[in-house]
């Protein structure tokens, strides 16, 4: 039995990756939940909005790298991120003006808007593939690790190493900053308050003189910023591939629904619930249990509940359980 090493292995392979992944999902789910709260439809194009923001950021990163600009130990992509956000915001505002506004004026049913967002998804997907192609793009640079496994072993004298990638640290810090700023905005500023009022009761908000067009525009800008940031962080941590971003839709929506659609707090909780369950269920626990249990009980199989290919099944199962037992989600979103 060696609990310290068990904890280190656990932190290295479960806690840290799941936290970073959870932060990325939470940012994605926040965007989905904001759109849902204000515009009242599930935006299927969100994954491809993330891909678009990431693509612009990658292109700018390459430009900066060509100019010889770097961000010291941090990834250059963070410098390019504001341009990515601005481009994504311009894209979604344009989409809203050309596509969504018409249906909003018509007071179309939510399902129609969802199908419209499918069309938008096709177009964005096409644009991204046209410009950057379908292949993996790795655009992370700067220092790779905050702590490498070897340094950790040398410093602590333990048998197991603990590595923290720069991208993981950046993800968590950025997510905390973004979420704090978003909540400050929603709770403290006049615009944020008007957004919450609009989400709670549209008619009442209109009666009290809130300008709906402005609320909708701010929502799209926030959603675009969240999508671009989530996309870039995910791309830095793993890699950028348009199809993977499309597939992120499922865990992101699962996170938003588990937390309760329309509830920002719920989206964050949902993101971490989905991420931790995915990693917990698909991680092979052999090593952790080998340290944590007495030698006689040490397992000789991998102790992997499901193969990693079934990670979708995990978010899906959680989604189904939540739909069955609490359709409004953990934080009482809209049903």
């Amino acid at each position: 039995m060696d609990l310290v090493n068990a904890l280190v292995v656990f932190a290295n392979f479960v806690l840290i990756p799941a936290t970073a992944y959870g932060a990325q999902l939470a940012l994605g789910a926040l965007g989905v939940t904001l759109i849902y709260g204000i515009l009242r439809f599930s935006n299927f194009a969100h994954g491809d909005t993330m891909a678009f923001g990431t693509m612009v950021t990658i292109l700018c990163t390459w430009g900066l790298q060509a100019l010889g600009v770097s961000f010291g130990p941090l990834p250059t992509a963070l410098l390019a991120l504001p341009i990515g956000i601005a481009a994504t915001a311009a894209l979604v505002l344009g989409t809203d003006r050309i596509v969504y506004r018409f249906y909003r004026r018509q007071k179309a049913q939510p399902t129609i808007l969802v199908i419209v967002s499918l069309g938008v998804m096709f177009v964005m997907n096409g644009i991204v593939r046209l410009i950057i192609g379908v292949n993996d793009q790795n655009f992370s640079d700067g220092e790779r690790f905050v702590i490498t496994a070897r340094e950790f072993k040398a410093a602590t004298g333990l048998a197991e190493g603990l590595a923290i990638k720069t991208t993981q640290a950046v993800t968590v810090v950025a997510a905390i900053v973004v979420v704090a700023a978003l909540f400050w905005f929603l709770q403290r500023t006049r615009t944020g308050k008007s957004m919450r009022a609009f989400s709670d009761n549209e008619d009442l908000a209109l009666l009290s003189g809130i300008n709906p067009d402005r609320v909708v525009q701010i929502t799209w800008i926030l959603a675009a910023a969240l999508a671009a940031i989530a996309g870039v962080l995910y791309g830095l941590d793993k890699s950028f591939k348009p199809f993977t971003y499309f597939q992120l839709l499922l865990p992101i929506f699962a996170a938003a629904i588990v937390g309760g659609l329309g509830s920002p707090l719920g989206a964050i909780a949902g993101g971490f619930i989905i991420a931790f369950s995915e990693v917990f269920v698909t991680y092979a626990w052999k090593k952790v249990l080998g340290y944590a249990l007495p030698d006689a009980w040490a397992p000789d199989t991998l102790v992997q509940l499901l193969s990693t290919d079934y990670k979708f099944a995990v978010s899906f199962t959680i989604l189904i359980v939540v739909l069955l037992f609490m359709p409004t989600g953990l934080f009482r979103g809209k049903s």
Binding site: S42, T111, V114, L250, F312, L319, I320, L324, P327
Partner: peptide, 27 residues
Amino acid sequence: TALGLRSDYLAIATLGIAEIIISVLKN
């Protein structure tokens, strides 16, 4: 499970089941 709830939920649930069926076939 998903009918009788909001219409969007069926969309998400079917999107999920399709991915799962494909991963079962692949694995």
